[in-house]
C-alpha cells in the first residue's frame, strides 16, 4: 500500500487547469478578517446604530408617556418613568442581596439548562433515528409542551422534595421541548446521500452518527439551544414564584406583592437583559461548530 502511494505521488497528473486558473483570478479570502475589522463593518455598524436609536426612542416615549400620565386605552398613570426605574436600579446595585438574586437565578438556569440540553439533544437524536422511540415519546411531547410553566407550580411543589428541585424542574421543562424538537427536525433533515456516502466509505453505524447525523443536525440543534435558553428564562420567572427567598423572578414577584412598581420594571428588565445575554452566549458557543456553514455563504 505504501509503495503504491509513493509511485502515485511521484507523478501527479495536472488536472483541471482551466478551473483552477479561473479560481485564482478571483481568490476567496483566505485570511479571515480580524474581530475588530468585522465589528466595524459598515453594515453591522449601521444596524447597531439603528438598534440603539430605536431603543432610545422607546425610552423617550416611555418617559414622555409616564411624565404626561398618558391615558389612551393603555394607561401610563401608575407606570414609573425610566428615571425612577433607573434610580431604583442604581440603588439596588449598592445592595448585596440584588447580586444574590441574580447569582441564584443564573445558577438555576445553568443547572436546568444543562440537563435540558443533554437530555434534549440525546432524546432528539435517538428519536430522529428510531421510528419506534419517536412513536413512543412523541405523544408526551405533544401533550406536555403546550402546558405553560405557571400551570406546573402546584404539581411541581407536590411532586418534588424541595422548592429548589421544583423550580429547576419547571425551568428545565421550558428549555427541553425546543431543544428536543429542533434536534429531531435536524436529524430528519440529514441528506440520505451523505449517509450512503459514509456507508460506502466503510463507516460503522456509530461513526455515521458522529460524522454525518450529528453535524448535519447541528445548525438545527444550535437554533434549538438558543430558543431553549430564552424559554428557560421565562419559565424560571414562573418557577421562582415558589421560592421564598432568592432569585430575580422572586425579586420581581415580591416587588409586585409589595406594590413596588419601580422594582417590578427593574426585575423585568434584568430578566430581559440576562435572557438576551445568555442566548447570545449560547450562539457564540455553538458558532465554532458551524464554521463550515459560515463559509458556504
Amino acid at each position: 500500500m505504501t509503495q503504491a502511494v509513493q509511485t502515485l505521488s511521484e507523478e501527479p497528473i495536472p488536472l483541471g487547469q482551466t478551473e483552477q486558473s479561473a479560481l485564482s483570478k478571483d481568490p476567496a479570502p483566505t485570511v479571515t478578517p480580524g474581530l475588530l475589522r468585522r465589528a466595524l463593518h459598515p453594515d453591522l455598524l449601521r444596524s447597531l446604530g439603528l438598534g440603539l436609536l430605536s431603543l432610545a426612542a422607546g425610552v423617550l416615549f416611555w418617559h414622555w408617556a409616564s411624565a404626561t400620565n398618558l391615558n389612551v386605552f393603555v394607561n401610563f398613570e401608575n407606570v414609573p418613568g425610566p428615571g425612577k426605574v433607573f434610580a431604583s436600579f442604581l440603588g439596588h446595585l449598592e445592595t448585596e442581596i440584588f447580586y444574590t438574586h441574580i447569582r441564584v437565578s443564573m445558577q438555576r438556569i445553568l443547572i436546568s439548562y444543562s440537563i435540558a440540553a443533554a437530555l434534549g439533544i440525546g432524546l432528539g437524536l435517538i428519536m430522529g433515528r428510531s421510528r419506534i422511540v419517536r412513536a413512543f415519546v412523541m405523544p408526551y411531547i405533544e401533550v406536555i409542551r403546550p402546558i405553560p410553566a405557571v400551570a406546573w407550580i402546584p404539581l411541581a411543589i407536590l411532586m418534588w422534595p424541595t422548592e429548589e428541585a421544583s423550580i429547576i424542574y419547571i425551568t428545565f421543562l421550558g428549555a427541553l421541548f425546543p431543544i428536543v424538537l429542533n434536534t429531531l427536525h435536524g436529524v430528519e433533515q440529514t441528506p440520505e446521500v451523505l449517509v450512503r456516502a459514509a456507508q460506502s466509505l466503510g463507516a460503522s453505524r456509530l461513526a455515521i452518527f458522529a460524522h454525518v447525523v450529528l453535524p448535519a443536525a447541528m445548525p438545527s440543534i444550535s437554533a434549538g439551544l438558543a430558543i431553549g435558553m430564552g424559554v428557560s428564562w421565562f419559565s424560571l420567572l414562573a418557577g421562582e414564584i415558589i421560592s421564598g427567598q432568592y432569585g430575580i423572578g422572586y425579586f420581581t414577584w415580591n416587588a409586585y406583592s409589595l406594590i413596588n412598581y419601580q422594582d417590578i420594571v427593574v426585575g423585568m428588565l434584568v430578566i430581559g437583559f440576562l435572557g438576551t445575554a445568555s442566548t447570545a452566549a449560547i450562539k457564540l458557543l455553538t458558532k465554532p461548530l458551524l464554521k463550515w456553514q459560515k463559509r458556504t455563504r
Binding site: 446521500v193 451523505l194 456516502a197 459514509a198 460506502s200 460524522h211 453535524p215 447541528m218 463550515w292
Partner: peptide, 14 residues
Amino acid sequence: RGMVFQQYSLLPWK
C-alpha cells in the same frame, strides 16, 4: 466498492 454520486455528496462540515 467506491461510490461517486451525482452531486453534493461530500460531507459539508469536513
